[in-house]
Structures are given as structure tokens and as C-alpha cells.
């Protein structure tokens, strides 16, 4: 289990992470949702030991152990897919997997089995020997993810894994993340797309300017901070929007006053949660 306990990190005057606390349970996809510059990547870098917290501690704990992120043993149990594609483009996809597998101590048939499995996971079996520079952006993203799991880690950290990919590739990545959850992995998923967090994450930590604003399951966050939904009603040429927590009752009231040609109910979402918590839209 990954534990952040009152963790803070500053770069000069900028407090990138401010008193951040959370725990990631086994078998869950844990979302870190926030706009660019919220401190998500800094938190990830502290989770993998690339940065040291100024205050607080980051630990990996279990019944049997309690490890620092920099512990070599711990590094074998975590996989990172960085935000930027971090691959050797001059060599093949399979060779990238093979190289990082060796670094994690895999050898011989174990290594080859994992390479085959990861190529299959990333749907790159047919192009495994092709040099990565010839891959499309989506293929590189999938390989970037596959490299993170070559050593079958318990915890997988995905830092904005869908940045710059087309909708089809994004869906493919979602499917891979869901596979990881089904496989019992802990997944930390950072994103500034609320749709992704809403679709994939069991629990979401909303952070802004380094601070944790709220942490819960998606329905609970919406319930607590989403506010009313919106009923959009069209009558003739005019369209009106009505905030409501009881869309059917509101629709009946509107129908009683005049005939409604068309209506749509927009339930509250994480965007609304973020807006209500911070006073700003998620994409500001």
C-alpha cells in the first residue's frame, strides 16, 4: 500500500505539494485529479523516489514490510509510465521491453514470457521487432505503459497516460488500465481529464495548487460536492437550463406550464465538484 502522510514539497517559493495525505489500497485505481501545475507529477516523483519530500513521509507498507520509495526492493514492486514517452526509439518495442525487464532482474524464459505478455497487453505483438521511431503516437503510448509493467509490479503509476493521443488510442489505454485493475494491481492514475477519472478511478483525490481538496469515490464526491444537476429544456426555438436535484419533479413543473419539445438532464460531475471546491473550472 502506498501511503502519503502529510507530504509537502517546494521548489523555491513555489509550494508544489502542500500537506498531501492519502493511501492507495490494493486492487484499486486511485485517481489524482487536478489541473496542470496542481502538483500531480511532483507527487508521482516523490512516490517513486525521484524527489524527496521536504516534510512528511512517503512509504510503501504491508503487513510484512514498511519501505522507503528509494529502497531497491521496493523499486521492483512499482512501475512508472512517465507523462512523456520514455522509450529508446532507435530499437524495437520488444527490445525496449527486454532491456527494462533485464534491469528489473528478469532473465531467460521468464523475461521472454513477460515480453510476449506485455506486447500482447499493448496490442503490439505484430510490430514488436519494428523500431519504436516507426510507431504511431498511440502505439508509443501503449508501449510506454507496457514497459511500466514488464516486471509485473504490484503498484503501477500512470502519469497522464493519455496526453496527446487520439480518442481511439485513449480508449485502448482505458481498457489496459481496467485490465490492470482486474489483475489486482494498485494503480495511481493522474489526469486533468475528469471524464477519465470518472470512468476509471475507484477513488479520486482532487488536488489544486498542491493541496488535497477532497478524496473519496466518484459518486461520493459528486454527492458531497457536485451540487445540483442541470435540466436542459427546449420549447420551440428557446432553450433553458434549470439547476435541480429532482429532475423529474422539475420537468413535471415545466410541462405543466408549457409543452416541452425536448429535454436533457445533465447530472453533476467531477468538473462541477472541482468548480465547487476551488471556484475555478478544471481546465483553467
Amino acid at each position: 500500500m502506498l501511503v502519503f502522510d502529510h507530504v509537502s514539497k517546494s521548489f523555491g517559493d513555489l509550494r508544489a505539494v502542500d500537506d498531501l495525505s492519502f493511501e492507495v489500497e490494493a486492487g484499486e485505481v486511485f485517481g489524482l485529479l487536478g489541473p496542470n501545475g496542481a502538483g500531480k507529477t511532483t507527487a508521482i516523483n516523490m512516490a517513486v523516489g525521484l524527489l524527496e519530500p521536504d516534510e512528511g513521509v512517503v512509504r510503501f507498507t504491508d503487513e510484512a514490510f514498511d519501505r522507503d520509495p528509494r529502497d531497491a526492493e521496493n523499486r521492483r514492486s512499482l512501475g512508472l509510465a512517465p507523462q512523456s514517452i520514455a522509450l529508446y526509439e532507435q530499437i524495437g518495442g520488444a527490445d525496449n521491453l527486454r532491456f527494462f525487464g533485464r534491469l528489473h532482474g528478469l532473465r531467460g524464459s521468464d523475461l521472454e514470457e513477460r515480453v510476449v505478455a506485455c506486447l500482447d497487453f499493448a496490442d503490439l505483438t505484430d510490430v514488436g521487432k519494428k523500431v519504436v521511431s516507426k510507431y504511431s503516437g498511440g502505439m508509443k503510448r501503449r508501449l510506454n505503459l507496457a514497459v511500466a509493467i514488464i516486471h509485473d509490479p504490484e503498484l503501477v503509476l500512470l502519469d497522464e497516460p493519455t496526453v496527446g493521443v487520439d480518442p481511439q488510442s485513449r480508449n485502448a489505454i482505458f481498457e489496459r488500465v481496467e485490465q490492470l485493475r482486474e489483475g489486482g494491481k494498485q494503480v495511481v492514475y493522474t489526469t486533468h481529464y475528469m471524464e477519465e477519472a470518472q470512468r476509471l478511478c475507484d477513488r479520486v483525490a482532487i488536488i489544486d495548487r498542491g493541496r488535497l481538496m477532497a478524496l473519496d469515490t466518484v459518486p461520493a464526491l459528486i454527492e458531497a460536492h457536485g451540487g445540483p444537476g442541470n435540466l436542459v429544456v427546449r420549447t420551440g426555438d428557446s432553450e433553458s437550463r434549470h439547476e435541480t436535484t429532482d429532475p423529474l419533479g422539475t420537468l413535471a413543473e415545466l410541462q405543466a406550464r408549457q409543452a416541452v419539445d425536448h429535454f436533457q438532464y445533465l447530472p453533476p460531475d467531477l468538473e462541477a465538484v472541482f468548480l465547487n471546491l476551488t471556484g475555478r473550472a478544471l481546465r483553467d
Binding site: 523516489g49 525521484l50 523499486r75 521492483r76 512499482l78 512517465p82 520514455a86 534491469l103 514497459v147
Partner: peptide, 8 residues
């Protein structure tokens, strides 16, 4: 970054 995260 990947190398530094690996157990080396």
C-alpha cells in the same frame, strides 16, 4: 527517469 526508477 525510467532508469532511476529501476532497481539500479
Amino acid at each position: 527517469m525510467r532508469l532511476l526508477v529501476a532497481p539500479v
